[in-house]
Design a protein around this nucleic acid. Structure first.
Length: 159
DNA sequence: CTCCGCCTAATGA
DNA sequence: TCATTAGGCGGAG
């Protein structure tokens, strides 16, 4: 019988962020879909003190947190390669979808790479929000562009 | 095989 | 700047 790991919850003014865990680490992170900010300011209301919650708190605070252990992320081999590529982008930096495609050795597969970003099972931890279009616009974000804007602003505020 | 998509580059207005 | 178009590729059915 497998060990049951309680999900970790971070409560914010934009809603709840939920993280799911397995024995080897984080396996998922879900956030509410936010198109436009629902309140004046974003704030973390309750974060807990475990490594995952702390990472999320620090990320929004504009710090450069140490990423906790990531568990097995379920996806196709190609998707896993893309997600591993994402993890090499440092906090506070961005890459274009084209650059990411080149990094993982598939320079022609830009659009497929973007699709894999969109299937990222653990946003915030696997930083797909650091990937933008070649023309400088943001591109998309699975849970709504408001999150992508917020995260990029937080990560770049500290430089 | 067909259709679709967090893209890109080129072209025209 | 915006709208259109074609190209390339993985994933789902």
């Amino acid at each position: 019988m497998p060990t049951v790991h309680a999900p970790r919850i971070v409560s914010t003014s934009w809603g709840l962020i939920e993280m799911t865990l397995s024995a080897d680490g984080l396996t998922g992170c879900t956030l509410p879909w936010i198109d436009a900010p629902p309140v004046e300011s974003f704030e973390v209301l309750d974060a807990g003190s475990d490594a995952y919650s702390s990472y999320v708190f620090d990320l929004f605070a504009g710090a450069a947190p140490q990423r906790p252990s990531i568990g097995h992320l379920s996806g196709t081999p190609f998707q896993v390669r893309v997600w591993q590529g994402l993890m090499t982008i440092p906090t506070g930096e961005t890459r274009t979808y084209r650059e990411l495609a080149a990094v993982i050795g598939c320079p022609q597969a830009v659009r497929a790479v973007a699709n894999a970003c969109g299937r990222n099972p653990a946003p915030l931890f696997v930083p797909c929000h650091r990937v933008i279009r070649t023309d400088g616009t943001l591109g998309g974000f699975s849970s709504g562009l408001a999150w992508k804007r917020l995260l990029l602003a937080a990560e770049q505020s500290n430089r």
